[in-house]
Structures are given as C-alpha cells and as structure tokens.
Amino acid sequence: MSLKLKALLKSPWVFHLSTGSCNNCDIETLDCLTPRFDIERFGMLLVGSIKHADVLLVTGSCNRMSVERMKALWEQVPKPCLVVAIGTCAGSRGIFKDSYNCPVPLDQIIPVDVYIPGCPPKPEAIIAGAVKLIEKVGSTL
C-alpha cells in the first residue's frame, strides 16, 4: 500500500465530484487548472473517469440523491484513494445543515483526508490544501 501511495503523490490525478453544491467550489477547482494558478504544472490532472483517479475532490452538501451515487463511485475507485472535502458544505454542511435534504456530513459517509474550508475556498486555499494533503500522506510513509 505504501509503495502505491508513494507513487500516487508524484502526480495525483483528481476526480471532481459535486454532491449538491452551489457551483462555486466547482468553479474555483476548475480555476486552479487555468492560467493564473495552473496546478497542472505540478502533475495534477483533472480526469474524466473515476477509474483513473488518485484523489477525490468532493464539493457540496451531500444531498439524498447524490449520496447513493457517491457511495457507488467510492466502491469503484481504485484504492488507495485520498479524499479532499472542498468548501464548508462538504466539511460540515455549512448553511445547509438544517436542510431536509442534507442529512449527514460527508465524513460520515466516506473517510476524508483533508478539509479545505471556505465559501468558496479561494484557489490559493485549494492549492494549499493539496500541498497539505501531499505532506500529510508523505509523512506517514
């Protein structure tokens, strides 16, 4: 497992999963890939299929309809896979905690490695979160 993790940290490919977010975190995640921030130069690539993913970027407040699909995706993803909760919604449901359609926070459904708070977190914060993820996992190897 640790060899796999070590290889994964060199160039983490990310899959982006929106579980009922307001679009902001998703756009800021995409923003990280565009010229001003451009995290692709560090080997982080947004992939279109969960089967290629090393890191799962989860945004949104996990509503009832998408939770089922998220669980299905979590079963499909090749392990080891790291999970990053982007935004306050994914971290703690934020302003939607009283909603009838957002029953539990993300970390009660799948294990989360790094939380990036903010509504929405700035691209700088997302990049800092990615660095922390790599440091955290790297230190355990």
Partner: peptide
Amino acid sequence: YNHRGIEKLSELKTFENSTFVIERICG
C-alpha cells in the same frame, strides 16, 4: 442531484439572513 431545499431554508430564516442562503442557490 443538487436539490438542497433552499426555499424551505429561506422560510426558516429572517428576511435579512435569507439573502445568505439565496446567494448560495448558485455560485
């Protein structure tokens, strides 16, 4: 897949606080 029950949440908040929920309908 994005339904969060915003109209209901808005009715739980005061007129002034509702703007923050309304803002998060869409980024």
